[in-house]
Measured scan of single mutants.
Amino acid sequence: LQAFIKTLTGKTFTVEMEPSDTIENLKAKIQDKEGIPPDQQRLIFAGKQLEDGRTLSDYNIQKESTLHLVL
């Protein structure tokens, strides 16, 4: 599935991932794409901060969901 990552500066980019991917995997993909170390990334979806060990499906993240990236 493709999801949108929106930063506080208003920049939006897309990442490809599977519902079974962990938040940790997602942070690694963001690092590959944007060069931001995972330990500096905080991802917010539906008002909740996402925990590394959980999966996208745990948070009911669907295709074309928008996640907010806070540094």
Rank of each mutant, 00 (worst) to 15 (best):
G10N: 05
Q40L: 12
T55G: 03
E51I: 07
D32Q: 13
K63P: 15
K63V: 09
K33I: 15
I44K: 04
Y59K: 01
F45W: 10
E64F: 15
G47R: 03
Y59T: 02
E18F: 14
K27I: 01
S57N: 09
L8V: 13
N25H: 12
K33Q: 13
F13P: 00
V15P: 00
K63G: 15
Q49S: 08
L67N: 02
V70H: 12
Q41W: 05
Q40M: 10
T12D: 05
K33F: 09
F13T: 02
T7D: 07
A46G: 12
K29N: 03
G53N: 12
I44Q: 07
G53C: 07
L69E: 00
I5S: 01
M17S: 04
D39H: 12
V15N: 00
K6A: 09
Q40V: 11
T55M: 10
E18N: 13
L26M: 06
D39S: 12
Q2T: 15
L26K: 00
K48S: 09
E24D: 08
I61H: 05
E16M: 13
E64M: 09
L43H: 00
G47W: 04
S65N: 08
T9K: 10
R42Y: 12
E18M: 14
E51F: 05
P19D: 10
F45C: 03
P19I: 12
T12A: 07
V15F: 09
R54S: 06
K11F: 10
A3Y: 15
Y59D: 02
F4Q: 10
E18S: 14
K11T: 07
T12N: 06
A46N: 15
R54P: 03
T22H: 03
F45Q: 03
T66D: 04
P19L: 13
E18D: 12
L69S: 00
P38V: 15
A46S: 09
K33N: 05
P19C: 06
G10Y: 03
E18T: 12
Q62E: 12
L1K: 05
I23P: 01
G53K: 12
L71H: 07
P37F: 05
K29F: 05
K11D: 08
S20A: 08
A3F: 15
T12M: 10
R42L: 13
N25D: 12
Q2A: 08
T9G: 13
L50Q: 01
S57M: 12
I23E: 00
E18A: 13
D52I: 05
P38L: 13
P37T: 05
L1Y: 11
Q49I: 15
F4L: 12
T14Q: 07
Q49F: 13
G47P: 01
Q2W: 13
D52C: 04
E64L: 12
T66H: 15
D21F: 05
D58C: 03
Y59F: 04
Q62G: 14
L26Y: 00
D58I: 02
N25L: 13
L56Q: 00
T7I: 09
T55H: 06
Q49H: 11
L67S: 01
K11I: 09
